[in-house]
């Protein structure tokens, strides 16, 4: 059996020297090329969870394994797409993508070649040499996603990537991301507030409780891929939506 892209073993995180328990014994996996979403009420420690997986924080107890390696507290094993596009304003669109690849150890020439090839594929090549501020919010998030997708790290963390976008752009972005991901599978862990988003995109959904967060349920999303944008019309979609909604109450 090949190693999971991510395996969390009994992750516990306390703050204020044990007085505040944020995460309580989380264990789950993300299989290779699997798309897993985490959904939970605000304040359920999702940001903390990402900081732990990214190695910025150390858990009070438990272990983080990425691609079969024990990585607890060590960085550089994930690529990342935050809620704010977080493109360096002084770097061109292409140079922003190259930066992510360079930090991950890809050589400059190869990084530049890939950045341009993919910008062309997502129809943003004409902006390759522009500064990010000329792009719309949605376009910036496309670049931000591309940057994470091209990075060679074995796991992609998407942190409420569409949370700052308006409803319509958000929907378009979900479709766009799904289409690209279905053709270029990677191991993804997505944090989101949107139940529809989780259902549309993921293979599996992990529902968290509020602090201290424990796993309430793991739901396997039964829809075939490639998925239709009209998924919401299916009765099972709405059933699942309602079930998750009740879990979150």
């Amino acid at each position: 059996m090949t190693a999971s892209a991510l395996e969390l073993k009994g992750i516990r995180k306390d703050f204020d020297s044990g007085r505040k328990n944020v995460l309580n014994g989380l264990s789950f996996t993300v299989a290779e090329n699997e798309f897993v979403s985490i959904i939970g009420p605000s304040g359920s420690g999702k940001t903390t969870l990402f900081q732990l997986i990214g190695g910025l924080e150390k858990p009070t107890a438990g272990e983080v394994w990425i691609s079969g390696k024990l990585t607890t507290g060590s960085r550089g094993h994930v690529s990342y797409m935050p809620q704010q596009a977080s493109l360096m304003p002084w770097r061109s669109v292409s140079a922003n993508i190259e930066l992510a690849l360079e930090v991950a150890g890809v050589n400059r020439k190869e990084a530049s070649r890939q950045a341009r090839e993919w910008l062309d594929r997502i129809d943003l090549l004409e902006y390759a040499d522009s500064y990010p501020h000329v792009l719309s919010g949605g376009m910036q998030q496309r670049v931000s996603f591309l940057r994470a997708l091209l990075s060679p790290q074995p796991l992609m963390l998407l942190d409420e990537p569409f949370g700052a976008l308006d409803a319509l752009t958000r929907q378009q972005m979900q479709q766009w991301l799904m289409a690209i991901w279905e053709q270029n599978r990677r191991s993804v862990l997505l944090v989101t507030h949107s139940i529809e988003e989780a259902l549309l995109l993921s293979d599996r959904i992990i529902v968290l409780s509020s602090a201290p967060a424990v796993i309430l349920e793991e739901i396997t999303v039964p829809f075939d891929r490639p998925r239709s944008p009209q998924l919401w019309r299916e009765p099972r979609f709405n059933e699942l939506k309602q079930r998750i909604h009740e879990l979150l109450q």
Binding site: G55, L56, V78, P82, V103
Partner: peptide
Amino acid sequence: TDPNLRNYMQMIGAGKWQ
């Protein structure tokens, strides 16, 4: 520095020099 940019750089594994 923008805390979002800093957090991003740290998440993807940038070292002190980077």
